[in-house]
């Protein structure tokens, strides 16, 4: 098993997340894409922790912090989504242009 396999998998997952983040119309799917990207970063941290720093495993500590921040981000993001839905009566990302021009 090599480090590069895990890093390539994480890169693929991150790129899928970026694609979903840009092209999704549904706001819930945008939040799901953000979760995909955060998980790709976590795979990177865990792979570095196992292969480059197996004695101190600081990568695992970082991954735990990223998981914490991701949980907080999901809660606040979905609350914002509910507030927007109550105001605009839609979840279409194309119609959230209140601050655009």
């Amino acid at each position: 098993m090599q480090l590069q396999y895990f890093l390539l998998l994480a890169a693929a997952l991150f790129c899928i997340g970026v694609y979903g983040l840009v092209t999704s119309r549904n706001a819930v799917r945008v939040l799901m894409s953000i979760e995909l990207m955060l998980n790709a970063v976590n795979i990177n941290l865990m792979a570095f922790s196992n292969y480059l720093d197996p004695a101190m495993i600081k990568g695992q500590i970082f991954a735990v912090f990223v998981i914490t921040v991701a949980a907080a981000e999901a809660a606040v993001g979905l609350a914002i989504l509910l507030a927007i839905y109550r105001n605009r009566d839609t979840v279409d990302m194309e119609q959230f242009n209140l601050l655009k021009w």
């Binding site: 819930v28 939040l31 999901a74 809660a75 979905l78 989504l81 509910l82 839905y85």
Partner: peptide, 9 residues
Amino acid sequence: LILFAIMLV
């Protein structure tokens, strides 16, 4: 949480 948000909106 995401499933609940989908059900709510």
